[in-house]
Structures are given as structure tokens and as C-alpha cells.
């Protein structure tokens, strides 16, 4: 294989590359946050208007721990009753699987073609 001579990259072009990468990074990480699509918030399904340790499902031993931590039934209400919702659709799960698999297929295919060039140039003339 003929030796590949990469072009010299100017300083402005290098700077632009860094800026592009940083913008993409912040976009990927902050856009879901800004759109309110990030994370799984816990919610209280049925609020208890007059909570007691018993109505919150706490045994005396558990209630004693909460009191030692400085809580009373009212202040511990949301902490104790909030739950995650793990329901999901098969379509969403399939989408995730397809995205993950396609991503790795893309990476491995492109990597293989690049790798063959590397090996050919490194060892081709031996």
C-alpha cells in the first residue's frame, strides 16, 4: 500500500474541531435535561392526608430510625411513598436494542476498513 501522507491541519481548523466536539458533547448530555426527558422521577401514587408511621407502612423499628434521622410522618411522607414506574412498551425496548446493535455494527465495520489500511501500511512491505 502506498504511504499515506495526511494533510497538515491549520490552527483555526483544529480549534473548530474542538469546538464542534464540545458542542456535540454538551448537546448530548444537556438537551435531554432541558427537554425534561432525562431520568426517572419517582411519584407518589396516592397521597396520605394525615400520615402516621403505620399508614406509611413503617414498623416501630423503622419509624424509630426515621425519628433518629430527624423525620416525622409528614416530612417523611414523600420519601417513603414515592415509587418508580417500571412499565414500558415493547416498541421502546426494541428501539433501544436496535440502536445499540446498529451502533456497534457501524463502529466495527468502519473500524475494520480503517484497520486494514493501518496493517497494510505498517506491515505491508515486510
Amino acid at each position: 500500500m502506498a504511504h499515506y501522507n495526511p494533510p497538515t491541519q491549520g490552527k483555526v481548523s483544529q480549534l473548530i474541531d474542538v469546538v464542534v466536539l464540545v458542542i456535540l458533547t454538551f448537546g448530548a448530555l444537556f438537551v435531554p435535561l432541558w427537554l425534561g426527558m432525562a431520568g426517572a422521577a419517582k411519584t407518589v401514587a396516592t397521597a396520605d392526608a394525615n400520615p402516621t408511621w403505620e399508614s406509611l407502612g413503617q414498623t416501630p423499628a423503622q419509624a424509630a430510625k426515621y425519628e433518629a434521622l430527624g423525620y416525622n410522618p409528614a416530612s417523611a411522607h414523600d420519601l417513603i411513598l414515592a415509587r418508580f414506574d417500571y412499565s414500558f412498551s415493547a416498541g421502546a425496548l426494541l428501539t433501544m436494542i436496535v440502536v445499540v446493535v446498529l451502533y456497534y455494527v457501524l463502529i466495527l465495520r468502519f473500524s475494520e476498513s480503517e484497520y486494514r489500511e493501518v496493517i497494510a501500511e505498517k506491515f505491508g512491505r515486510e
Binding site: L21, L24, A28, A38, F88, A92, M96, Y103
Partner: peptide
């Protein structure tokens, strides 16, 4: 996926874009 599926897809979307770049 059970809690943070959106971030997972967003992050892989990011890696696909930067891979093409």
C-alpha cells in the same frame, strides 16, 4: 432502559454523529 432510556439513546445518537464526523 427502565429509567434512563432517553439518555441512553441520546448518548448513542451522539456517538453515532461523532463517529461519522
Amino acid at each position: 432502559f427502565l429509567g434512563y432510556g432517553t439518555q441512553l439513546v441520546a448518548m448513542i445518537g451522539f456517538y453515532i454523529v461523532v463517529s461519522l464526523w
